[in-house]
Write a protein that binds this DNA or RNA. Sequence first.
DNA 1: TGCTACCAGTGGTATGCACCACTCTCTTGC
DNA 2: GCAAGAGAGTGGTGCATACCACTGGTAGCA
Lengths: 247, 247
Amino acid sequence: MTSIAADQQPLYQRIANDFAARIASGALKIGERLPSERQMAEDLGYSRMTARQALKVLERRGLVETRTGRGAFVAHPQIEQQLSTLSGFTEDMQRGGRVASSIVLDAGVGAADLEAANALGIAEHAPVHRLVRVRLADAEPVGLERTEIPAALAPKLLDRADFTTDSLYRVLREDYGIYPSEAEQRLWSAHPDASSAAALGISMQSSVLVLTRRTLDATRRPIEYVRSVYRGDCFVMRVNLTLGKDA
Amino acid sequence: MTSIAADQQPLYQRIANDFAARIASGALKIGERLPSERQMAEDLGYSRMTARQALKVLERRGLVETRTGRGAFVAHPQIEQQLSTLSGFTEDMQRGGRVASSIVLDAGVGAADLEAANALGIAEHAPVHRLVRVRLADAEPVGLERTEIPAALAPKLLDRADFTTDSLYRVLREDYGIYPSEAEQRLWSAHPDASSAAALGISMQSSVLVLTRRTLDATRRPIEYVRSVYRGDCFVMRVNLTLGKDA
DNA sequence: TGCTACCAGTGGTATGCACCACTCTCTTGC
DNA sequence: GCAAGAGAGTGGTGCATACCACTGGTAGCA
């Protein structure tokens, strides 16, 4: 029976995936405690070491964090943190004592242009949810963000929440079970085009930071494509590179 | 004897650190094969599982990569790869069919200014190795990189090699046993100052990408501070974010 | 000569056990 | 009433063992 390839995945991977799915579906909420290693093993009939191995996988994926003598807990989503510290807008503003906010310029369904379609792996002119927001610091526009998400991926997405304040990722996660797990970002320095300059209230001779981001979920399915323009004089991007957590 | 805190570190960590040190010192070279798990265990008197655990640590640190049925091998340094793909200069140029090269404008010992001193954790005016290079694509200047390294860290560093072609990290690694393992990068969009504009042959109204990088080694000791200016019209920075390798 | 089949060695997975340090609770004793 | 201490439960470390899938070489056959 070696021909059966159905669950050729190792046991600990299946256990990990099972928990990952339960976290994604919301059956396990952020901060909630997982069953103890011994209990998992006994209840479900495998060894404690196997349970540990599964937890290690979840920990490395950033879905779970463990505390000695306490237990294992569902962690706060990490890629989102990385994406947000990368563009660290809100914190930057708050650290500077300024108030961050957004204005939604557009929120609806449109047709993907060629660039977005390529990035998202869909046909040109295929329908996408489009969210265009101006980022403000103390009511002054400092950035223009344009996000596109395949319409087929998340039906009625933009009816779900008020994205002036709400997080797009939170809705994708909690309402659609979609977890960002990977992202490719490109950024460069340029002068703004006419419409961006107008939206930001700056001259076309100014220096701006242009950013594109292609975000994938755990199955490497593209879930969003972002194109942003930030004013160069009030925006610093931080990137931290590390190798593992072990000293 | 519970008071002795000398080697309270777990066994597998000590094994891992031992191998890490041997890799850093050059006793184990890149690509070289490590002893097999069973052999390590038998020779040195601990369990195979413990040896495995140590190898897992090294794998996560990016020092070692394992191949089923083959063995474990010393990996190519990863942070350096990340730093270079981040600034992906050479590859970008090669992909575009252009030839990448450098001109060394300055290579010697100087006094740290306040910004560099703070970043490197040394006193202002303390001696640093200073390396200033212009990056060229097809003989056209596209970036200006200014690197500073505490002089105390690597005596006679700049006599060691010709940095027109050689890699700074390679020399740090092989001659001084210093491994970059962490980096903080900041970047923003701006107009160049007069001297940078002159070095790059561009106008002061151009848009440039400014980058600073603070690199730390495994003990979180600052080892370099880099300030760079890149022409916005011919430089794209790529950043990839991921969580773990497991599907 | 050239292919196949085998085999020894390797990492990968899984089990089971033992002991430790840590955290929290609940009881005991002042 | 409150503090010290016992105890149960948790993750962390380390051990021994077994079998699997994969790799590379080699011996043997055509």
